[in-house]
Design a protein around this nucleic acid. Structure first.
Lengths: 197, 197
DNA sequence: TTAATAAAAACGACCAGTCGTCTTTATTTG
DNA sequence: CAAATAAAGACGACTGGTCGTTTTTATTAA
């Protein structure tokens, strides 16, 4: 009961952190703003997290998990080949980003740029999150290779890296152009062309 | 004399801003830190700039100019074909980034992620800077197409977009991996493979 | 002397983090 | 089982310090 409430509070803090840190950045978001949003007193924050920095490190993991699950469920679909599944997954992301009117983008990309080389704690969390995500993409691409839809003269891991990086860069462009064109072009160029046999 | 000094002060503020904003971000850098570094009193800042935001917008332009000049001089080299010139230019960048031990990365990428969708002023400045840079890349790729080294079934402009975006994403990865491998792979995959005939 | 520029001082708002205190739960003792 | 004690959690007020910006004073140039 009490333990449950603590879990809920922590979960709420993490969820709100995902939104606020993604939209306003690490230094652009004060603890007060987060705590007000979830109605938790200032003094209670440090019962849940040891510092703002370690909080952000946890927010990063909390952010990436749903994406991994979503991507995985697409890849698990037995009716689709892996390359189509990847395409469908990214198209879903694009719809979401259009719905959000291109605000925020990706928490990982934003924090990599802002504090990726200044906060040790967050750097490690970002490494872990990005690599977990990249590995799943590589698994999908490997499957596409075995299905004969993806080229085999490049390793699935290298293609996954390229896809992650281009996607991140395209999200940055999306933010300043306020347009879905960069992220659509990313999918067309890589999934629709370069990765194909 | 006075006008000249004012110009020098402003120039120093912009140069220092490039370094600090790139390494610590917009919200992570206080005006005091910048002013202390160039030894200009805090009260004098608003004699040079109307706000921190408009200052950052000017810093962005001040940042990109040398890159455009550097890239342009490579492309102007009459002894090299354009694709080789582009490769040489990016290899120079990689050397610089290794020398800096992967700290900072690119001011444009970092600020796109942090404030690219929250500051109108900086968003416009980022648009201008990125597009000026991208257009020059497209010019180089167009030249490579005419020289027969780059594929012509994709427009030079689209390839330039892809190159900019992948480069930006690779820089983010570089920051958290503390390695030049992502940016090297970007060059290998695009300039060394995908863009070639 | 007047106008323009520079810089000092001060502004309220906000920052991450800590404090002592109070309440609730867990453990020990009779 | 109950009472006493200990530990843990929750909490708002407050810390010193910094934020970007404005107002006021001092200096310079015309």
């Amino acid at each position: 009961m009490v333990l449950a409430k603590k879990q809920i509070n922590k979960e709420n803090l993490l969820s709100e952190g995902v939104q606020l840190l993604m939209q306003q950045g690490y230094h652009g978001t004060g603890l007060k703003e987060i705590l007000d949003a979830v109605q938790i007193p200032k003094g209670s924050f440090y019962n849940y997290f040891s510092s703002k920095e370690s909080y952000a490190a946890e927010v990063i993991q909390h952010y990436i998990n749903p994406f991994i699950e979503q991507l995985d469920s697409h890849l698990q679909n037995p009716e689709l080949d892996a390359l189509t599944a990847l395409n469908n997954y990214f198209n879903e992301l694009i719809v979401e980003l259009e719905k959000a009117e291109f605000k925020g983008g990706c928490l990982l990309g934003n924090l990599m740029g802002e504090i990726g080389d200044t906060s040790d704690l967050c750097q490690k969390s970002l490494q872990l999150a990005v690599n977990r995500y990249k590995d799943l993409l590589a698994t999908g691409l490997k499957k596409a290779q075995m299905e004969g839809t993806a080229r085999i003269d490049k390793s699935a891991d290298d293609m996954a890296d390229l896809l992650v990086n281009t996607w991140q860069g395209a999200l940055l462009r999306m933010k300043i152009e306020q347009s879905a064109e960069p992220i659509k072009q990313c999918c067309n160029d890589l999934l629709g062309d370069y990765f194909r046999v």
